[in-house]
Design a protein around this nucleic acid. Structure first.
Length: 763
RNA sequence: GGGCUCCUAGCUCAGCUGGUUAGAGCGCUACAUUGACAUUGUAGAGGUCACAGGUUCGAGUCCUGUGGAGCCCACCA
């Protein structure tokens, strides 16, 4: 008699027990599982198989999207059972900017801001903030059943990670791929940092359109220009019209007068200007507009800035100097009106305002010195690999999109003005760069702002400046030394940090300890990369770029793009809709297996979206219970038969089976083959559906009913045990907990846990 | 403006390279339930596969167009 089974499958207690059994037996570690399989005479392939976890934000709870990590776990379990040296490498991210934003919100509640701290203190505070709850994500991932090797857990700010990132930067610098330049960047005065193009959005906004007259020099004529940003007129340097525009042909080449400051500006012709739009005349402000900057370069125009880094008007706009740009807009309009230059205002004009993706706050295009990576050569090499199918994609569209992006790539601005991140390893000598501007908190707690030479002559020591530094602003041509540690007492380190994607783009290298680590040798390139399509360009493509650049190989052989998990009605989950599902709630309620099945089989992970409903998850909870009760019933039959003196032989093909047995065994054989093939071709849903249907509607509904009436119980039970244990093994990657739970009730000779048992093979 | 995807039962979706009476889960209806499971079983209703053309012996599946939904990229002052 085996021990009694509960009437129901109690997922809450079972899942806890099972996971700690796996963990304490070290069954997620490929070296150990290989050893165990060998000891048990199970086949071990020499080959390794690996997948990296896209690092969730360390201290934030998981959202439903993270439940898709089940895909990674599914394949790890599948490959582990097939005898590969299967490794799932976990990790968490510092999520630099994201985390800093959250931290700053907390500061705001305390009535403080980032400006109250020097750089170092602020960094330490944010890091502690992250560390306080750094295991939130990890513990929840364990609840989902992730069989990741936690002994290899990597944090994005681990020392070895930072070192690799530094080495890469040095190599890129040595290869001439790094440069510093003034560049029109997406600057957010609100966040105090720049954003990459990928991190900005356009938001439809009603903005008044102002029609402004610019007088033409030595005539009574004027040219009218429409603009939504009159405050930038202070920085206007030209007016452009389309060369084909007959209305303006006779005035091209003349000089017009800036209505605010009287600057003499050329009237130029450029085909960029759309004669149909507005008045057909465009003011050119290279200091505050991306397109104008390009036109300005083409026509060799001066770049003037009228807005500073805090979003306030500067000395080039004396009438409104110190006023925030948005406010200055109406003030400037009033000024124009006074001067008789304002023709009319269209109050209902709708345009697309550039904002940041995080808070939707306006972006100010600004000319700032920035560190860049030259992308053309890097992208070209990566594109070649993609073109040659050195990496596979689960859908052809992802290959196409990757190539499109790689072929139209622009240089990558990698400096961010956030504190929480990996500081760029560049140092500036104070004496060689006397004009660098420094903002720092001195030993009296006062914030000082000025050029380094002025501050030194006021008696400040470089050491004092260094310890209280907040921000260093250097020019494009400032002299610098590339170094991780300070090259001397006279040096100040660059305060900019790397874009988070610069470090996470090297995730396959950092987690595996490139270039000399054992894991790098054993597991690179990895086998699978699974991610949602929204970070295709941020992350997936950049990992390819870094991987190819440093190792000559794409860091993974296969990219599986999964879709977004929507609510039951197919709507995107969002706080404002109030339809956000906490995945852990459903793990509590229905079990991790049920949630995993809801994602993996209830929807199609490869589709762009997939709806997740509570009904579905409940349905799969019922399936868990079905599995449990099938096992329970099999045990009751075994007990009864054995109590009457019978013995059930281990199944073998020599058994004298009847027609009913042959039928189910043949089906089992087909199911093994099809499930394996479907999984190998990444058709997860179909594989899961197949086993689900077989277990419930063929084994339980039909075969078990037949067994009830069988006279030859020994044969029937032997076949039943074989069919059940085999199909539960097929189900294990989908529903690891319940299948492992019933495994010990299979009355088999082996005590080997299912997780390291053999993947069934068809006859 | 450029590119892409989707439209199959009340709901959420499968149907891969075209081939028997179009499938699943949930929901619904009726019945059953004295060896496990009511988190159960059996049976059933329900679809002119968005629409219109075309290719084909044959189209949900391929092509063209129309309508609807959505996504990505770029962005007009």
């Amino acid at each position: 008699m085996t021990k009694q089974m509960d009437k129901r499958y109690e997922h809450a207690t079972k899942e806890k027990e099972i996971y700690s059994m796996w963990e304490s037996s070290n069954l997620f570690n490929p070296e150990n599982t290989n050893k165990i399989r060998k000891e048990n005479s199970l086949p071990v392939k020499g080959e390794s198989w690996s997948v990296l976890m896209p690092p969730p934000n360390a201290n934030a709870p998981l959202h439903c999207g993270h439940a898709t990590y089940s895909i990674q776990d599914l394949y790890t379990r599948f490959k582990r059972m097939q005898g590969y040296s299967a490794l799932y490498v976990p990790g968490t991210d510092h999520a630099g900017f994201e985390t800093q934003v959250v931290y700053e919100r907390n500061l705001k509640k305390e009535g403080k801001s980032r400006f109250d701290f020097d750089r170092k203190t602020l960094y330490e505070n944010v890091l502690n903030f992250v560390k306080e709850n750094s295991d939130v994500a990890i513990n929840q991932l364990k609840r989902l059943g992730m069989s990741a090797d936690w002994s290899r857990n990597t944090f994005m700010l681990d020392e070895h990670v930072i070192n690799i990132v530094y080495e890469t930067f040095k190599k890129m610098h040595a290869d001439g791929l790094v440069y510093k330049d003034y560049y029109m960047v997406n600057y957010s005065p609100y966040h105090g940092t720049t954003f990459s193009n990928l991190e900005t959005e356009h938001k439809e906004t009603v903005s008044p359109l102002y029609y402004v007259n610019y007088k033409i020099k030595d005539t009574e004529q004027a040219i009218t220009v429409a603009t939504v940003r009159p405050e930038t007129i202070f920085a206007d340097v030209a007016i452009a019209v389309n060369p084909e525009d007959s209305r303006y042909k006779n005035i091209v080449g003349k000089i017009c007068i800036n209505p605010l400051n009287g600057r003499e500006m050329p009237l130029i012709a450029d085909s960029y200007v759309d004669p149909e739009f507005g008045t057909g005349a465009l003011k050119i402000t290279p200091g505050h507009d991306f397109n104008d900057y390009e036109i300005g370069k083409k026509h060799d125009l001066e770049v003037i800035s009228s807005i500073d880094l805090e979003g306030k008007m500067n000395e080039n706009a004396p009438e409104v100097c110190g006023v925030f740009a948005t406010k200055a807009r109406t003030l400037t309009a009033d000024l124009l009106k006074e001067k008789g230059a304002l023709v009319k205002v269209d109050e209902k004009y709708v345009n697309n305002l550039l904002v940041d993706y995080k808070d939707g706050k306006p972006i100010e295009p600004m000319l700032l010195p920035n560190w860049f990576i030259k992308m053309d050569e890097l992208a070209k090499k990566a594109a070649e690999k993609v073109k040659n199918d050195e990496v596979a994609f689960n859908l052809p569209t992802w290959k196409k999109q990757t190539l499109d992006w790689l072929e139209n790539i622009r240089d990558w601005p990698i400096s961010r003005q956030t504190v929480f991140g990996i500081q760029i390893p560049v140092w500036y000598c104070a004496t060689e760069n006397p004009n660098m501007r420094v903002v720092f908190i001195d030993s009296n707690g006062e914030t000082k702002d000025g050029s380094i030479s002025d501050l030194v002559s006021q008696g400040y020591k470089i050491s004092e400046i260094n310890s209280g530094i907040q921000k260093l602003i250097t020019g494009k041509d400032s002299k610098y030394v590339l170094s991780v540690d300070s090259p001397g007492d006279d040096y100040i380190q660059e305060t900019d940090t790397f874009d988070t994607w610069f470090s996470s783009g090297q995730w396959p290298l950092t987690t595996l300890h490139y270039p000399n680590g054992n894991d790098f040798k054993a597991f690179y390139p990895t086998s699978l990369m699974d991610s949602m399509w929204d970070i295709m360009f941020f992350w997936i493509t950049r990992m390819i770029i870094f991987g190819v650049y440093l190792t000559g190989e794409v860091p993974y052989k296969m990219v599986y793009m999964h879709g977004r998990i929507n609510d039951a009605q197919g709507r995107k989950m969002s706080k404002s809709l109030g339809n956000v599902i906490n995945p852990i709630d459903w793990v509590d309620k229905y079990g991790a297996d049920a949630l995993r099945m809801g994602i993996l089989v209830g929807g199609n992970t490869a589709a762009k979206m997939s709806a997740l409903s509570e009904d579905k998850v409940r349905g799969y909870r019922n399936f868990s219970n079905k599995i449990w009760n099938m096992t329970r019933f099999m045990n009751l039959m075994f007990d009864e038969y054995e109590a009457s003196g019978g013995t059930v032989p281990v199944y073998s093909s020599n058994l004298l089976v009847v027609e009913e047995d042959t039928a189910i065994l043949e089906r089992l054989n087909t199911v093994i083959k099809d499930t394996t093939d479907l999984l190998e071709s990444y058709r997860i849903k179909e594989a899961g559906d197949l086993v689900y249907d077989f277990v419930w509607h063929e084994v339980a509904d039909v075969y078990i009913e037949q067994v009830k009436n069988r006279e030859d119980k020994s044969i029937a039970l032997s076949v039943l045990r074989h069919v059940m244990s085999t199909s539960f093994a097929l189900l294990h990657p989908f529903m690891p907990f319940v299948t492992e739970s019933v495994w010990e009730y299979m009355r088999m000779e082996t005590t080997l846990p299912l997780i390291v048992s053999n993947w069934p093979t068809s006859a």
